[in-house]
Computed example of a mutant assay.
Amino acid sequence: MTDLSREQLLGAYDKMSKIRAFEDRLHKENTTGDIPGFIHLYAGEEAIATGICEHLTPADKIASTHRGHGHCIAKGSDVRSMMFEIFGRADGLCHGKGGSMHIADLSVGMLGANGIVGGGPPLTIGAALTAKYRGEGNVAVSFTGDGGSNQGTTFEAMNMAVALQLPIVFVFENNGIGEATGADFSIGAKSIAARAEGFGLPVLSVDGSDFFDMYAAAGEAVGRARAGGGPSAIEASAIRFYGHFEGDPGLIRTQEQLAAQKASKDPLQIFRDKAAGTVDPAELDEIDASNIDLVDQAVADARAAAEPDPSEVDTDVYLSY
C-alpha cells in the first residue's frame, strides 16, 4: 500500500484531520460575522495537500489558491497563528493583514494564498528557477484549481518550466466546479491532464480523495524534480464539501448529490478504510478529538487577541532590497 511507517501514517492522518477540524469550525464561525473578508474552505480535498506535502521540506516552496488553509496546514503552519490571521489579529501569520484569502507563511515555504485565479504558477516558477540556480535540490509546487487551469498565466508557467527544465510540480485540484461553473463545460479539452501533456510535461491523473494515491503520485513527481529530471503535473480529482465561498448557496449541487459525494469521497474515511489493520481506529479517533480541541482553543485565543495597531497600516507593504 505504501512505504510509510505506522508513525508516518498517523502523522499524515493528523494533518488531514487538522485541516478538517479547522475548516469545519470556520464554517460555523463565519456565521457570527466576526471574521473579516471571504473564506474559501478546503474540506474534502485534504488528501491532495497532505499527499504532496509529505514529500516536501521547509526549504521547498508552494503557492496556493484562494482556498489555502489546507495547504498551510499540510506544509506545517501553526494552526493558532493561522486562526489569528483569519480573525485579523496582530499576532497572525501576516500580522492580521492578509486574512484567509491571502494567508502566507514564508517560514515553512508557503508563498501564500492568492486571490488571482492562476496567480500561483508564475510565483512557483520563480521559486523553481531559484532552486535550480542555487543547486540545493529544492523543489516548488503550484496548487491550482480546475478554473485556474484555463488561465494564460498557467500555460506560460508550464511552458517556461519545460523550456528551462525547472524542478516544479503543477498540481491541479479538480473539484469539478470552477466557482459555480462545471469543469465539464469550462475546460474545452475535457482533460486537464491531456492539456498539460501538450506542454511536454509528464502527467499523472489520480484520485485526489485517496491519500495513498496522492502520496504515490507525489513521490514520483517530487522525486523527479528533486533529482534534476524537470517538471511534471498531477491532476487530482476530488470534491469540496462546502460552497465556493462561505455564504455561497451552492445551488450547482442538490443536497442529495452532495451527500452522495461526501459518502463516497471523504478523504478521512478512505484513509481509515485503507489503513485498517495498520493503525488502530481508536488512535485516529483520538487524533480527531485532539484536533477539534486544538481548533476550539485557537478560536478562543483569536477572539481575545489584540488587533493590529492602526499606526502599522503602511508596514509590510513594500520590501526594500
Rank of each mutant, 00 (worst) to 15 (best):
G229K: 09
M158E: 12
T254W: 03
A104N: 05
A180V: 08
A276W: 03
A282S: 09
V169N: 04
G230K: 05
D266F: 07
I48R: 03
T144N: 12
M83F: 06
H40G: 05
M83T: 15
G92W: 03
Y133H: 14
I86H: 03
T130D: 13
G243P: 10
E197A: 13
A302C: 05
E156Y: 11
S237H: 14
D301E: 14
D213V: 11
I73E: 06
G119C: 08
K97T: 13
P202R: 03
A302V: 09
A140L: 01
I52H: 04
E286L: 06
L166G: 07
G208H: 04
F271L: 13
T315Y: 00
I292R: 15
T144S: 09
S320R: 15
T144M: 06
K274T: 01
F38A: 12
A90W: 04
D314I: 12
V299Y: 01
A183L: 01
S100D: 01
H95Q: 12
K132L: 09
P58K: 14
L41H: 00
L258V: 15
G119I: 03
E173F: 04
Y42F: 13
P202Y: 05
A21I: 02
F170D: 04
G120D: 06
E283G: 04
K15H: 10
G229S: 05
K190H: 12
L56H: 01
T124M: 13
G198N: 02
A189G: 07
G152I: 12
I234N: 06
D266G: 08
T154N: 01
I116C: 01
K265F: 05
C72A: 15
T130K: 13
S320N: 05
A104F: 06
T278D: 06
F143Y: 15
G126P: 04
I35W: 02
L41C: 08
L251H: 11
I73F: 10
F172E: 03
L284T: 00
S311E: 12
F172H: 02
L41D: 01
F185K: 12
E220V: 15
K190E: 13
A259H: 02
V79D: 02
P202F: 04
A21D: 09
A260G: 02
R89L: 10
G44Y: 08
G152A: 07
G148M: 03
G228C: 06
V162N: 07
G247T: 05
V299F: 07
N159C: 01
L56R: 02
M214T: 13
G51S: 10
E179L: 14
Y42G: 11
D184N: 13
D314V: 11
V279R: 09
G176V: 05
R224C: 11
G99P: 01
K15G: 02
R303H: 02
A282L: 02
G223C: 13
P121T: 05
V162L: 07
V295Y: 04
N30H: 09
H71I: 11
E136S: 13
C94I: 04
A157H: 04
A161I: 14
A263T: 04
D248G: 01
M1R: 13
S186N: 07
S100W: 00
